[in-house]
Design a binder for these strands. Structure first.
Lengths: 239, 239
DNA sequence: TGTTACCTTGTACATCGTACATAGTTTTGC
DNA sequence: GCAAAACTATGTACGATGTACAAGGTAACA
């Protein structure tokens, strides 16, 4: 199979180099490897996606993987592009750009919620993949009614996506945070002892924000706050 | 020395457990370990901060490090708190909240530019450190003139910091991107061949944004665009 | 029927974090 | 003074990880 990342990203394209039909047929396709990796990362986190584990899941020997993907870094790019390609792209029916922007943000929050490991994939080569490009195109079209210049349109979309990404990061269950919450009575007590009466504002606001965060309703409230801010941020551009 | 993360974070506090003066005096302090780790990460990236390398830089055996820091994960938290503690906190003199918000954003961009590895430290226990809390307090005070509720004040600050963080991420020189840029003539040609005439909007906007990005002036322009958006986003809150 | 091209596999290596046992060094309590 | 206690420093070792490399097997082409 091809080793080159670009050809692997575009492996479903008619012009992509097909595997010459000599030797034995591959027991798995690159797409099967990528799908298995995505499934594994979704359920057990990106750290579980090791060559040995993934090969085991696929019934292959460890090194056979490298016939299909090139390297682990390449695999991460392929995984990201796969979930980008699979993300729904409903037609933009609404006229109101605000509603469209909200939909884009919500779709990205949903994407990162379904695949939290996306936050750990920062490889810029992801932009070369067909799924990522299709997603980019679809989201650019969401901003059609705003009448922006090309550069501003890109910048505005980046602004929305960065917000969604940051919100997803804040929601992500961190293993360290989990252990921290578990022993919070003790930890909080000691922290309070060190803090004393210093930074009263930080203590008060932090407590308020923390209480709001723990109240079950809050992630949604925080999201709506941010989303309203994003819409307000973009409004001046449309005048 | 103490092994517990909280005690290490607060090691300069009068109430922190001092090392009982029995055995030989430690050849390095925890602060020296953390400072050396920060210096190493600043110059060679976080991946270079390994136990063996760091110990070597300090003239210690590998395992001696663990007398001073507990674990690598703990070390990352200590590093983040150290740079938070060292960040300048000039008094907020301006009355205009917009100017104050811009200063906060710029300070955070500068922080992440000086220490790009901060983007890789996502451990939530960082919030327990004195440097991080002092930074939080100072930045909350920047928003004093806005007259926000506690919860909104925290959310507004989060909004600003997330923006700065995303901007820093976009600017960060990625090793993969560097190699990509190097061989771009070839890569771009093949990508164009695959893309053909599909996604014309993405191609046009992507090209425009890419051109603007490569024009040396741009990072600054993109930053100003985003910063103006952030200020516009927060303006409705002050009415 | 080679020959060629491809897939699969096993072995091996460098590197990582760090558990653990050991040994050395200084203060403390008698 | 001296043993005990508390502390630091070190070396060895283990289980992971990514992946280079060589060898072997298998199907289609000449």
């Amino acid at each position: 199979m091809a080793r080159d990342l670009i050809d692997l990203l575009w492996r479903d394209h008619p012009d992509a180099p097909r595997g010459g039909a000599r030797g034995p047929r591959a027991r798995v396709t690159t797409s099967q490897v990528v799908d298995a990796a995505v499934a594994l990362a979704d359920t057990e986190g990106l750290a579980a996606v090791t060559a040995r584990r993934l090969a085991g899941d696929l019934g292959l020997s460890t090194m056979s993987l490298y016939t299909h993907v090139g390297s682990r870094d390449d695999l991460l790019v392929l995984m990201a592009d796969a979930v980008h390609a699979a993300a729904p792209r409903p037609p933009h029916t609404e006229d109101d750009w605000r509603a469209r922007v909200r939909r884009v943000a919500e779709a990205n929050l949903a994407l990162h919620t379904a695949h939290p490991w996306l936050l750990e994939v920062t490889d810029q080569r992801t932009a070369l993949g067909p799924g990522t490009i299709a997603k980019y195109d679809h989201e650019l079209h969401a901003l059609d009614p705003m009448g922006l210049s090309d550069v501003d349109r890109d910048a505005a979309l980046t602004f929305v996506l960065d917000f969604a990404r940051a919100a997803a990061r804040a929601r992500r269950p961190d293993p360290h945070a989990a252990r921290m919450a578990e022993s919070w009575p003790e930890t909080g007590r000691r922290l309070a002892a060190y803090l004393g009466a210093d930074h009263p504002l930080a203590q008060r606001v932090g407590a308020a924000a923390g209480a709001a965060n723990n109240a079950a309703y809050n992630p949604e409230a925080a999201w709506r706050f941010g989303l309203a801010r994003v819409v307000a941020a973009l409004a001046p551009l449309t005048e």
